[in-house]
Amino acid sequence: MAYDKFNILTSTAVPLPLENVDTDQIIPARFLKATKREGFGDNLFRDWRYNNDNSPKESFVLNNPIYSGKILVGGKNFGSGSSREHAAWAVYDYGFRCVVSSFFADIFRNNCLNVGVLPVQVSVEFSEQIFNAIYDDPNTEIEVNLPNQTITILSTGAQESFEINSYKKDNMLNGFDDIDYLQSMKTEIESFANGLLL
């Protein structure tokens, strides 16, 4: 599915300094019954965000008007567990274009790249600097520069570079997805398949 191109994103950020945030928290299974990719943002972090009577839990960061922005900063091992791409859809649909963590679970990272959310892995120290900067001043802006592969805390100037393979980088910059590429390889794939035993 097409997504908006990603180049340089400058935004305030939402801090969620918990470790091992699993995809069941990002989007609980009971919200996976849709047959279309619509409305998942409403249920992002559903059970942390709302009480049983659907009233917002004030203590949860997404309900705190002080924090907003297009960047979500999570703790270590973000996105573990279920392979549900709905988790990445929920993050995107809510309005985040970038998730920052000191460590991502594999499948979630991959799903993010496929739907137009940029996963930015930083050092533990830098992730703490970001949390501190946001807690000091929630209006702190973070710049995520995909062409240069850098992330900068604009208030302090602290910067770190991040990794992304050149193929995925090119996709994100242009809003391409893998299907475009794979479609162009059909003949090669078919001849490969013809040589298989099973």
Binding site: M1, S83, R84, E85, H86, A88, D106, I107, N110, N111, N114, V115, N165, Y167, D177, D178, I179, Y181, L182, Q183, M185, K186, I189, A193
Partner: peptide, 22 residues
């Protein structure tokens, strides 16, 4: 291994996905 829905679509239409070797 498990994949996301975008990759399900890739496999349906090309029988391939794009993965770095772990």
């Amino acid at each position: 291994f498990g994949i996301g829905t975008s990759e399900v679509e890739m496999v349906l239409t090309t029988q391939c996905i794009m993965q770095p070797k772990p």
